[in-house]
């Protein structure tokens, strides 16, 4: 019971740190490259604690990010759920994969997220679609091994 409670507080704390990293003001060039911190941390917990953190948690976290970023309410909620669905359906295999394979899968999940996010932005007239949408995919993938080892350590 106690480990469950500590687990949950670690999840909340790591997500809070991810929100901070996602909102720290950066110069315009770096802003384009900013990894999707919240999504990465969320994906980790979806894979590590699938019985506690599920699609509905992803939805709530996405909605919170919508409030913070001022995007359309539900925009991140939807994209997070779709990316999370992808991760959850593969979480059994995920543990058997090598680090490189894991990183590629994460990159794929983030790419799905960026694609749908970009399309919504396009349809709601926030931005025109361009390939710079995919720069964060690369940097998120580069960050994944660090996040994975860090959170793995914290959890133990």
């Amino acid at each position: 019971m106690e480990t469950r409670a500590t687990n949950l507080s670690i999840v909340l704390f790591s997500l809070f740190v991810a929100f901070l990293l996602a909102t720290i003001p950066l110069s315009n060039t770096f802003n384009l490259l900013r990894p999707e911190w919240v999504l990465l941390v969320l994906l980790y917990w979806l894979i590590a604690l699938p019985e506690r953190i599920g699609l509905s948690s992803a939805w709530v976290v996405g909605l919170l990010l919508d409030l913070v970023e001022g995007s359309l309410l539900g925009q991140h909620a939807m994209t997070f759920v779709i990316a999370a669905f992808f991760a959850v359906s593969l979480h059994q295999q995920f543990r058997m994969f090598s680090r490189t394979q894991q990183t590629l899968l994460i990159a794929f999940a983030v790419a799905i997220y960026e694609l749908i996010d970009g399309l919504i932005a396009q349809f709601s007239g926030q931005a025109s679609f361009s390939f710079s949408f995919f720069l964060p995919v690369l940097f998120s993938a580069l960050m994944w091994p660090f996040i994975f080892t860090l959170l793995q350590r914290v959890r133990r």
């Binding site: 309410l73 539900g74 909620a77 939807m78």
Partner: peptide, 22 residues
């Protein structure tokens, strides 16, 4: 998953078209 996605879609449309959520 479909339920959550649909819920998010409804929210988005509500937010984009109308001002209930302001």
């Amino acid at each position: 998953m479909f339920l959550l996605t649909a819920l998010a879609l409804v929210l988005m449309v509500a937010d984009f078209r109308y001002s209930y959520l302001d």
